[in-house]
């Protein structure tokens, strides 16, 4: 079997180049192939991996243009392996993970204030069980086309994480969470759905973003683009209850 890996090193190979590897192995995962190359052919090949079982989120890459976990992908002859998109490549298949993770903090993706010892029915927990299956592998981030035009977009995984906490029956401060995703957040998503099929955990960030939009509407927030259009066409007519305390994440 023959595969190609896009390699880059600021020290040795300043422009990314495809390297071809011939493997005498069949029916193996991409991670097994990467390990075989590193330990037997070229120890300088750089990639990250950990659990081998799809829960640590370390080994996401692109195979023939589609995001996959190396540990879960069964290799085929002729596959082209590249690093995740939308992120600076540090070396070979290793990207600047730090850059995408900063959006968790910007989106305030955490439990703000939980009621104590609250009873929750199984169906309440199950309704957002999937969102907390996220392993932060970055597949959705890599597939998101919004970054081509807006580098500050909070992005699919951070917004899924926010929906996880917003939809939690224990959360007491939903407004704070909703406010934090108004700017560079839910309204900047194009609902293109590209983040959905690439998630190794079967999460649908697009749906979670739609849910956040719905919740925002109920709480009196609205799409700023739409709102701008409204005020233009209505010439600043009746106030439909514009959101109070609408702030960008940096100022709240």
């Amino acid at each position: 079997m023959k595969i190609s890996i896009k390699r880059y090193s600021s020290e040795n190979e300043p422009s990314a180049q495809s390297a071809e590897y011939r493997l005498e192995l069949e029916n193996i995962t991409l991670l097994e192939a990467l390990n075989a190359i590193k330990t037997k052919i070229d120890p300088s090949l750089s990639f990250t991996a950990g659990c081998r079982s799809g829960v640590c989120g370390s080994c996401a890459v692109r195979v023939n243009g589609t995001e996959e976990l190396a540990c879960g992908y069964k290799l085929s002859d002729g596959d082209l392996i590249e690093p995740l998109g939308n992120l600076p490549v540090l070396r070979d298949l290793v990207v600047d993970t730090q850059k995408m993770l900063k959006f968790n903090a910007l989106a305030r993706a955490w439990s703000s204030s939980n009621s104590e010892n609250q009873l929750l029915l199984p169906e309440q927990v199950e309704s957002n069980e999937l969102q907390s299956d996220c392993i932060l592998c970055g597949a959705c981030y890599s597939a998101c086309p919004v970054y081509a035009v807006n580098e500050e977009f909070l992005g699919p995984f951070a917004l899924t994480r926010v929906w996880r906490y917003v939809s939690d029956g224990r959360e007491q401060d939903v407004r704070e969470k909703i406010e934090a995703v108004q700017s560079q957040g839910i309204w900047d998503c194009t609902l293109c759905n590209l983040c959905v099929p690439v998630c190794p955990q079967g999460i649908a960030p697009k749906q979670d973003i739609s849910m956040l939009r719905g919740k925002s509407g109920v709480m009196g927030f609205m799409d700023p683009n739409f709102a701008a259009g409204m005020s233009f066409s209505f010439g600043g007519g009746p106030d439909f209850g514009s959101p109070s305390g609408l702030k960008s994440p940096g100022t709240s």
Binding site: W110, S111, N114, E116, N117, L119, L120, L121, P122, Q124, V125, N128, E129, S132, R164, Y165, D168, R170, E171
Partner: peptide, 20 residues
């Protein structure tokens, strides 16, 4: 466990709503 509950760990639940 109650501390984990207070910071949002999504524990599975019993029919009575307690942590399973």
């Amino acid at each position: 466990i109650l501390w984990l509950d207070s910071i949002g760990v999504p524990f599975s639940r019993t029919q009575a709503g307690k942590i399973s």
